[in-house]
């Protein structure tokens, strides 16, 4: 890849007259040695998996093995259809994001974007906006390349896993990726897309990873739902001309600094936060019956 930072990415796009998605497709083909067509088809397939996961989450039983999660997407979807949702059309993004996250928690098939814990946000934003604006699958696939370019920069300069950098690294990165990609899909230029990423990331700095019982369920699933809504908001701000006063590349460095300072107990170990509340601990005790007991060798 010829870029390491988002400002370099935006400059490359401007110099070469390409969108972030188009540039990333070309860079990916150069990196892999495959043709752009092959890379495009692989990404288009991934988008199909995302849409399937939205559908499954809205129609099938997504109760997880632990029984802790499932079917909330269907509750929200039914509510959105019957009542004047506070969020309006953004309610669909929220419902779809919950749907994909619930499919994930029930060991269904998803695409990690960038991780499984944050796999609902991009499909939630993309599928709902595709329906709303009538965009083609091809347009959405370029959007995924744009999201991937943004995630590539975040991952290589900071982190994208909760175990390394807390939930800000997982959910935060996914929101930034979705916000930047959506800005581009709606016609924003690369600089605006980069501002959307910065605006979004600032809103999740410091978010800890504290999965109850160590499971990717509570609070991960609802954070996917909220995350989709935040991504829509960040794209709106960027398209309206709001700029990230702290350049996005500097915000990414802050995520690295904050995540590195996070204690182990707030980095996916279930040793703190919501996981160690009285109820969180009780849930963990009840889960022990589900465990495959480690056998002593």
């Amino acid at each position: 890849m010829r870029f390491r930072h988002l400002n370099e990415l935006a400059r490359l796009c401007a110099d070469e007259g390409m969108s972030i998605g188009e540039l990333m497709l070309a860079e990916q083909a150069a990196e892999s040695g495959q043709s752009p067509e092959e890379e495009f088809v692989k990404m288009a397939d991934y988008y199909t998996v995302m849409k399937d996961a939205v559908q499954r989450g809205l129609t099938e039983d997504t109760t997880s093995r632990s029984g802790l999660s499932g079917l909330d997407a269907q509750r929200v979807d039914a509510y959105n259809k019957s009542f004047p949702s506070n969020l309006g059309v953004a309610g669909d993004a929220m419902a779809y994001a919950l749907a994909v996250s619930e499919v994930n928690a029930s060991m269904g098939r998803i695409i990690a974007t960038p991780t499984a814990g944050s796999c609902g946000i991009i499909p939630g934003v993309f599928v709902s906006c595709q329906e709303r604006y009538g965009w083609s699958n091809e347009h959405m696939t370029y959007g995924l390349f744009a999201a991937g370019a943004i995630g590539y920069v975040i991952a290589n300069n900071s982190f994208v896993s909760g175990a390394e950098g807390g939930c800000q690294a997982e959910i935060g990165s996914a929101i930034g990726m979705a916000a930047g990609a959506l800005t581009e899909l709606q016609g924003g230029n690369p600089a605006q897309a980069v501002h959307a990423v910065g605006l979004a990331l600032k809103n999740t700095l410091g978010l800890i990873c504290d999965p109850v019982g160590g499971l990717v369920e509570v609070p991960c699933i609802v954070r996917n739902g909220f995350g989709a809504v935040t991504a829509l908001a960040a794209a709106d701000m960027a398209l309206a001309g709001v700029r990230s006063a702290i350049p996005t590349d500097e915000v990414i460095q802050v995520m690295l600094e904050v995540g590195s300072a996070m204690p182990d107990k707030h980095r996916e170990t279930a040793g703190g936060g919501l996981a160690q509340t009285p109820t969180g601990k009780a849930i963990l005790r009840n889960l022990s019956s589900l465990r495959t007991k480690p056998k002593k060798s």
Partner: peptide, 18 residues
């Protein structure tokens, strides 16, 4: 992280990429 599919992907069964 070397390429776009290390960020978008893998296709996987849940619940945790790591």
């Amino acid at each position: 992280f070397k390429d776009v599919f290390s960020i978008i992907g893998p296709a996987m069964v849940g619940p945790s990429s790591s």
